[in-house]
Design a protein around this nucleic acid. Structure first.
Lengths: 92, 92
DNA sequence: TTTATATATTTAAATATTTCGATACATTTT
DNA sequence: AAAATGTATCGAAATATTTAAATATATAAA
């Protein structure tokens, strides 16, 4: 992973609401719908939508349209690549 | 590490200049002075200072005053804790 | 096919971040 | 003690991010 990508992911993770969203996806066992987040976050629907867009744009969260819902899952592979980037920042 | 701390670190890493600074500290073998960064970054001195403050506030970078210079090193321990936090976001 | 539900987009305001010039402070050198 | 050097702070402008109201779109249910 290059620095630009790591920067984007860091930025995506650098917000309290988005961290809660990610933890919620993780907690739910994975597949989670947009509306599930309404219950956890004290935000208007467009705000949640904005955060979801940010997370899916970086691909750290993957979205799949399912009927009129959207199903979200964590991109474990990309998370691993991000972790590897961070490990490289330490001594070899 | 709690989410609040992880958020701060993510935010600190979510900037191209700060990532360059961190990579530069890493590249240099570790101890690096503030003025070393002038050569790498196209930023005014107060801007660099601002970024260094942000990085040291989160403790991801450690500063030690040495004469009229400041010596910077990476906090590998905290980086590890951050990595552990990220690992917990994945499936157990 | 009208109505209801879930999500997305647009627009605008509030807030936060980034940047730099001016200046201050601390230490070292002369 | 004065000058030089390295870093920090203040204040302000430019830019980016976060938020929500209004509205749009897409699918499902009635």
């Amino acid at each position: 992973m290059n620095a630009k990508k790591a920067e984007k992911i860091s930025k995506a993770l650098g917000d309290p609401n988005r961290l809660i969203i990610i933890q919620e996806i993780r907690k739910k066992g994975d597949p989670l719908y947009c509306c599930d987040i309404d219950n956890v976050l004290n935000l208007a629907q467009p705000s949640i939508c904005h955060h979801m867009k940010l997370l899916t744009d970086t691909e750290i969260v993957i979205s799949e349209k399912q009927g009129r819902n959207v199903r979200y899952t964590l991109n474990d592979k990309l998370l691993d690549e991000y972790i590897d980037f961070l490990k490289c920042l330490k001594k070899d």
